[in-house]
């Protein structure tokens, strides 16, 4: 874990957006950004690829449709046919509403489950926050520091130029584990304390390939 990163905090979403774009244009590798609300256009500025969760949703829905259609056919025409009002065993037009509801149910639950698993959102999991106020009013950008052959101050200056109120350089794994907010109430009791830095997996870089 000797990779070094730059960690910058912004007060506004548009500053973060422009800084992200500029830093990426200069050829730096953006590790992640943390925002209190969905900043539109940030995924494009970071160069994230489109999520594939839409496909998960589509196939879950398709499964729901096929399964519910088959199940209604099987239970009313194969397993135990019962004469209801003289209708044919496989009276499929009457099966449409339930098949439709099944489609929606499977698609909705499937895509939410897929998102929670893909994002590592698990009940009771300790949050790994880069700064205490990141769920309140801070926008944090984490960028991989320059290798050799780059002016050492270039990245920090660039970030400040776009309005960063704080810039730090540090070892990568510390980035999301310590409270970075000197004005915050009690840095020692930051929620991030709950998770310890020994973890081998790098949470910020999780899903590094930018896919879902």
């Amino acid at each position: 874990m000797s990779a070094r990163i730059h960690w910058a905090a912004f007060e506004r979403d548009d500053e973060l957006l422009r800084a992200t774009q500029a830093v990426r244009d200069k050829g730096y590798r953006i590790i992640d950004a943390f925002t209190p609300f969905a900043v539109h256009g940030l995924d494009r500025a970071m160069g994230l690829r489109a999520s594939r969760l839409t496909w998960v949703c589509f196939f879950c829905g398709l499964f729901g449709l096929v399964f519910m259609t088959w199940f209604q056919y099987w239970s009313s025409a194969v397993d135990w046919p019962i004469n209801v009002g003289g209708k044919p065993w496989n009276s499929w037009p009457a099966f449409v509403p339930v098949a439709f509801e099944g489609t929606i149910l499977f698609a909705g639950l499937g895509v939410v489950a897929a998102m929670l698993i893909r994002c590592g959102l698990i009940p009771g999991r300790a949050p790994r926050l880069p700064a205490e106020r990141v769920t309140d009013d801070r926008f944090v950008l984490v960028v991989a520091s320059a290798g050799a052959g780059r002016p050492p101050d270039e990245l920090a200056n660039l970030l400040r130029e776009f309005g960063a109120v704080e810039v730090h350089e540090e070892l990568e794994h510390r980035a999301q584990l310590e409270s970075r907010d000197p004005s915050g109430p009690e840095p020692s009791s930051a929620p991030a304390e709950a998770s310890r830095p020994e973890e081998a997996g790098d949470p910020v870089a999780q899903g590094e390939e930018g896919r879902s």
């Binding site: 943390f34 925002t35 209190p36 929670l116 994002c119 959102l121 926050l129 880069p130 990141v134």
Partner: peptide, 16 residues
């Protein structure tokens, strides 16, 4: 669920 406001999570969240 351990939400930390990562842009990657937000992107998927918005899609969902």
């Amino acid at each position: 669920l351990g939400w930390n406001g990562s842009a990657r999570t937000w992107q998927r969240y918005e899609v969902v």
